[in-house]
Simulated assay, not measured.
Amino acid sequence: MLLAIDAGNTNIVFALVDGDAIKARWRIATDPRRTADEYAVWLHQLLQLEGHDRSVVDAVIVATVVPRALHNLEVLASKYFGVTALVAGRPPVDWGITLDVDEPQNVGADRAVNVIAAHRRHPGDLIVIDFGTATTFDVVDYTGAYKGGIIAPGINLSLDALVGAAAKLPRIAIEAPDSASVIGRTTTSQMLVGIYFGYVSMIEGLVGRMKAEVGRPVKIIATGGLAPLFERHVKLFDSIEPDLTIQGLGIMYDRLKARL
């Protein structure tokens, strides 16, 4: 089976993939100082809990936006699984799509992998929104080419900035409000309205502008750990797919196997 690793700025997701099926997935906080040995102890225990031995892993593929984390993940693959880690976007694992932007070498691995999976699963023009540390909006045309997008601060980053700069404001948990009212009655409810519905308005406004610029019918695909947070109050999403990055890594691995 394939061990697919999505190393983001906040969390690293490990998933056991068998063909099109994701057999198990685990998440750990991103820490570039974490060693291959620490990953191995943690993963070995989780594999056992799911009824798997580490010998079931015969390939490892990594997408990372945290360069400092890559070395220890590569050591994990070679030392504990006996394979050379494949890295998305690095030969022999090419993207297999056109990155039609001015600086293709700077496109985040997670964004390119999301585009690959979204295009495989949905025909036509797409906007892929990934709700993570940052919120990214990526435009994919009907041929599967990545045309560009938007990078915005994630909702938790926005909250951290607000609380960090205003001494009397408390730290609150971000959640979908029960009410659609945007007039808060307490300090905390006013903060929640400002952060949450301000973010909803940003999503709706940016997507509206992007759709107008594309000029053709567009499907909106949401992914990332925070995507379900907006499902109640954002009516734009055609599909919410939390495993899009892992699915994209699986597709890239299958393409590579087919070439070899």
Rank of each mutant, 00 (worst) to 15 (best):
G149T: 04
T187M: 08
P170A: 07
L192D: 09
S181N: 06
L244Q: 05
D178V: 09
S181T: 11
V234C: 11
Y196L: 05
E241L: 06
V182F: 11
T186Y: 11
A166M: 08
R171V: 13
A227Q: 06
G198R: 03
V193R: 07
R185F: 12
K147Y: 01
E241H: 02
A161W: 05
I195Y: 00
I151C: 08
P170E: 09
E213R: 09
R171S: 10
P170V: 03
R185S: 14
L157I: 15
M202F: 00
V214R: 00
A176Y: 09
I240M: 05
A165I: 14
V200R: 03
L249F: 12
R232Q: 15
R209I: 00
M202I: 12
Y196F: 12
A173S: 15
G208R: 07
G250W: 07
D178C: 00
S181F: 06
M191T: 00
A227D: 04
I220P: 05
I221D: 04
A167N: 03
K211I: 07
T223V: 09
T187A: 00
Q190K: 14
P153L: 08
E241W: 00
I203R: 01
Y142R: 11
A165Q: 15
A161C: 08
G248K: 01
G164N: 10
Y146D: 03
E231Q: 15
T187K: 04
S179T: 15
D160P: 09
H233A: 06
A176M: 11
A161G: 12
A152F: 01
A212N: 08
E175V: 13
I221C: 08
G194Y: 02
V214D: 01
L169G: 05
I203T: 04
S179K: 12
F230N: 06
G154I: 06
I195P: 08
Y196G: 03
L229Y: 08
V214K: 04
V182T: 15
M202V: 14
L236K: 00
I151K: 07
L229I: 04
P242N: 07
K219G: 07
K219L: 08
K168P: 00
A145Q: 06
T245Y: 03
R185C: 11
V182P: 12
D238E: 04
I240P: 09
I221H: 06
T245F: 02
K235C: 05
I150W: 10
I174G: 01
L157V: 12
S201Y: 13
P153Q: 03
R209E: 00
I172R: 07
F237A: 01
T187W: 10
V234Q: 09
